[in-house]
Structures are given as C-alpha cells and as structure tokens.
C-alpha cells in the first residue's frame, strides 16, 4: 500500500529540465529524507507534491487522489498534504493561535471554538502552547518553525512535506525543531523531508533518497546508504557534507 505515488515526474523551467523522470513511492507512516546537492531537484520535487509547481509530465497520486492543479481547487490540493517551509512563512499580523486557526476556519469551515481546541492541541504537541497569544516577531526562529509545523498539523494532513526546515535557523535552535519532527515520526506521521541534516536523516529516516541531476540516483535504508554508498556521486556527496 502506498500513500504517495510519483511516476515518471518531469518538470522544466524554460530550457532547464529540473526533474527528468522521478519515480517515488512512499508508504503510510514512512519517513523519507531527500538529500542531494543544491540544484539536484529535491525542492522542486517537494513543490510538485503540493502543486506549488505544476509538473509537465508524469503522474502524482496522493491518498488515491491524482494531482492536477488545473482541475482542482487549492482546498482539494491541501486536503492530504501539509508543508513546512525553510523561511517559516508565518502570518506576521496574526498571533500564534490565529496562525494555526486561520485555515481550518476559512478553508474547512470549522467553528472557532473547535478550531481553538485543535490549535491548542497541536501547539501543545510542538511545545508552543504558552505562546498562543504571542506574535511571530516575538518568537525565536526555532519557535516560529515549531508554530509553522503546528499550523500544518491543524489541517490534519496525511503527509507532511518539510523543505529544509532547519536551514534558516541558528545552530543552537536546530535541535528543538528536529526533536518535534522526530516525535511526529514516532507517532506514525508520514514525512517527506528535504534536508541537509545528515545525522537526522541517518537517525530518523526509514529511507534516504539521493537526488542527482534531476533523478533519484540512489536510495535505500540510511545505514546502508551512508555507510556503503554504491555510486561514486553519492560517495563524493557524503564525503563533502560529513
């Protein structure tokens, strides 16, 4: 059984072909870390999964729903997929609580009391409940990113996409965000992460996918992949980042 099914995915920006046929199946509850050099297409792959970019060729199916931005409203697209960004992208004019409650109320029509209850629940999960009434500008980067994770969780996605969620953080703040993700993984949340945190990928991911020149070059369980890379490109990449 697969939750996310990507078949022969192609995507170009003008003359530049960024994805050259990607196949990827993700099972429910699986944690997949995507690694690779910048420009290898990993972020583009993630952005195709929630249709921030529309793919040119191939198929994406998530929870049995075939993605087609032309034929779907944003509310349909977001039903199964949540996303956390490198730059947090919290709404600066709204409090932490309002950030989390906005989409359930506006998109799903959940009443405010219920939305507030869910908001407290997910904020508690990321350890940010006591900041319910704070504004994003009053929070550290790590705290903002945890709120962003809670905001995504409030929509009850089946899969959570994380696009280099610790890259914009000061080193001492990375840990608190990774711990939240680790806890989510243990709870059985399906995670697809683009990451530069090799230790995190090694310790938490069920599978590591190495992208190179717009294709999946090598993939496998983290222990094997990191300790016995079979392609020279991955060997080189690992020795460069470790």
């Amino acid at each position: 059984m697969t939750l996310v099914c990507v078949k022969d995915l192609h995507k170009s920006f003008g003359d530049l072909e960024v994805l050259k046929g990607v196949d990827l199946d993700v099972a429910p509850g699986e944690v997949v870390a995507i690694i690779g050099r910048s420009g290898s297409g990993k972020s583009t792959l993630l952005r195709c999964l929630n249709q921030l970019e529309q793919h040119d060729g191939g198929d994406i199916e998530i929870a049995g729903q075939r993605l087609d931005a032309d034929a779907m409203a944003p509310s349909d697209l977001s039903r199964n997929v949540g996303m956390v960004f490198q730059s947090f992208n919290l709404f600066p004019h709204k409090t932490v609580g309002e950030n989390v409650m906005l989409a359930p109320v506006v998109v799903r029509g959940v009443d405010k009391l219920e939305a507030a209850r869910v908001a407290r629940e997910v904020l508690d999960k990321v350890g940010m409940l006591e900041k319910f009434d704070a504004y994003p500008a009053q929070l550290s980067g790590g705290q903002q990113q945890r709120v962003a994770i809670a905001r995504a969780l409030a929509m009850k996605p089946k899969v959570l996409l994380c696009d280099e969620v610790t890259s914009a953080l000061d080193p001492e703040l990375v840990g608190e965000v990774l711990r939240v993700l680790e806890a989510l993984a243990e709870e059985g949340m399906t995670l697809i992460l683009v990451t530069h945190e090799m230790k995190f990928a090694h310790d938490v991911a069920d599978r590591v996918v190495f992208m190179h020149h717009g294709r999946i070059h090598e993939q496998g369980d983290p222990k094997t992949l990191f300790n016995h890379p079979s392609t020279p490109e991955l060997k080189q990449f690992i020795s460069a980042v470790l």
Partner: peptide, 26 residues
C-alpha cells in the same frame, strides 16, 4: 513576501481568501 502566498496556498486558501485574510491586512 511571496512566501505568504505559498503558505496560504498550501493551507488550502484560494486567491480571495488569501487576499482577504493574509495579503490585504499586511
């Protein structure tokens, strides 16, 4: 910032909802 549009979009908000709740107030 463009990121405000992206965040709204992945949360399922359409153009008018994003304008009204996220972009215009800012």
């Amino acid at each position: 910032p463009r990121g405000q549009w992206h965040a709204s979009r992945v949360l399922g908000m359409d153009y008018l909802q994003t304008m009204r709740h996220v972009i215009l107030p800012q």
